[in-house]
Design a protein around this nucleic acid. Structure first.
Lengths: 108, 108
DNA sequence: GTCGAAGTTTGACAGTGATCGTACCTTCGC
DNA sequence: GCGAAGGTACGATCACTGTCAAACTTCGAC
């Protein structure tokens, strides 16, 4: 047992803050995580990213991204999956992710 | 005389870096400066902004904004004018300033 | 020339955040 | 149960950055 949260807290779109989102995106490692999620179009477990930091540091980055509203996290067995909250971000800050991820990457 | 630079160095559009721009925009005071420039549509001297910091701190913020390419600075008498490099930013990172300044503020 | 207004420079300080190693906790497979 | 894999929690560094005060510079007005 243990009172561990299977599902950590996620902010709602109405709670997104520009300051917090920018603080999350200003770190190159975190931008890389977002870019990899955006490029793949799939959910990726924490260990599935190509980032040059230790596991504990990675955990920290995922936490920052989740609390800012950029990703959603959920467990699948022993793995923690990460999902980009594209639509939510586009709703809260239209154009921001596109501007940061370079070319708009139209997907209609 | 004095070897003081009447015109400090400004990066060219081709030299703009996303990392540097984000580091500049992550500070609320600097975002406020950019917003005031964008809203006014005019050039504003350093002392003409509504920001809650000392003069020396303000100088620092203007330097960061200039080196990132967000503003252009030039002297007019004893005043240092600040000009938003809107077009340059839009060219380097389309949509970024609009996304950060909230509503696109169409000006056709 | 002298004074004041407008900024800059310098140095110091405090807070924050990225980073890591180690220990710990779950879940899966056997 | 046991072990391993995948992450998390906890401290502890360490560098960077925002902040200010004080001293200095430069230009304009008189």
């Amino acid at each position: 047992m243990g009172a561990m949260a299977r599902t950590p807290p996620h902010p709602e779109v109405s709670e997104f803050g520009l300051q917090q989102v920018l603080e999350a995106l200003v770190d190159p490692v975190r931008r890389s995580i977002v870019a990899q999620l955006d490029a793949s179009g799939t959910d990726i477990p924490c260990g599935g990213f190509d980032i040059p930091v230790s596991k504990s540091t990675a955990t920290h980055h995922f936490t920052v991204l989740r609390e800012a509203g950029l990703i959603r996290q959920y467990y699948v067995g022993t793995s923690r999956m990460n999902s980009l909250r594209r639509a939510d971000m586009d709703e809260a800050f239209p154009g921001l992710l596109d501007a940061i991820n370079g070319q708009p990457v139209r997907k209609t």
